[in-house]
Computed example of a mutant assay.
Amino acid sequence: MFIRRCPLWFVVLLFFLLGAKADQPADRIIGRWQFPSKGSSVDIYRQGGLYFARVAEVDQAGEQNFGLMKDSLLIRDLRFDGEVWAGGRLIHPKTGISLSAEVEMSRPQVINVTIYKGIKLLHRKFIMTRQEKH
């Protein structure tokens, strides 16, 4: 009965706001994140229901040691399961090896990225920090 009395624009706005609020926990990961060396960074963004990481800035060490290239896609297809962003794939820029990727937010300004091939027991973990906006 309430919906019949409300103008259509109000109902559409209400559904939009409720839908946007549902995405907020997963969207906390969106932004620019710096690698531990602080010289290179990635932009994490959402496309549909999946999250991706594209290289934003590259320092000399990132280019030489890891083969990072500006604007290249580093991580693809992360899905938020309510606690972590999992199921993603990282393509190592230097070797081309495909690795599983998982991201966990330990604090609003810190994410733990875990990459592994095959079983998670044999993994590499690194911490990235949110880059402040200037």
Rank of each mutant, 00 (worst) to 15 (best):
R124Q: 11
L8N: 07
N65A: 11
L14P: 01
R76F: 00
S100I: 02
K21W: 14
Q34I: 09
F126M: 01
D23I: 11
R76A: 09
I29A: 04
P108F: 02
L18G: 15
V113K: 05
A22H: 12
E63N: 14
G39V: 04
S98E: 12
C6E: 04
Q34W: 09
I30N: 13
P36F: 14
G39N: 02
G96H: 02
V103P: 00
W85H: 04
Y116D: 12
K70F: 09
L74V: 08
G39L: 06
P93I: 05
D27I: 04
V110M: 06
F35H: 13
S106D: 09
H92Q: 12
P93F: 05
R32T: 14
G39M: 02
H92L: 07
Q131R: 14
Q47I: 01
Y51A: 03
H134R: 12
H123Y: 07
K38M: 10
A53N: 06
V84D: 13
Q34V: 11
P93S: 10
S98N: 03
V42Q: 01
L90Q: 12
S41Y: 01
Q109P: 01
L73N: 03
R5M: 06
A61G: 08
R54Y: 00
F2A: 11
M128E: 04
I111V: 14
G82C: 04
A56V: 02
L74F: 05
F35I: 11
K70D: 14
I30M: 09
A101M: 06
K117L: 15
I30W: 02
P25C: 05
D81H: 04
I115V: 15
M69G: 13
C6P: 00
F80E: 00
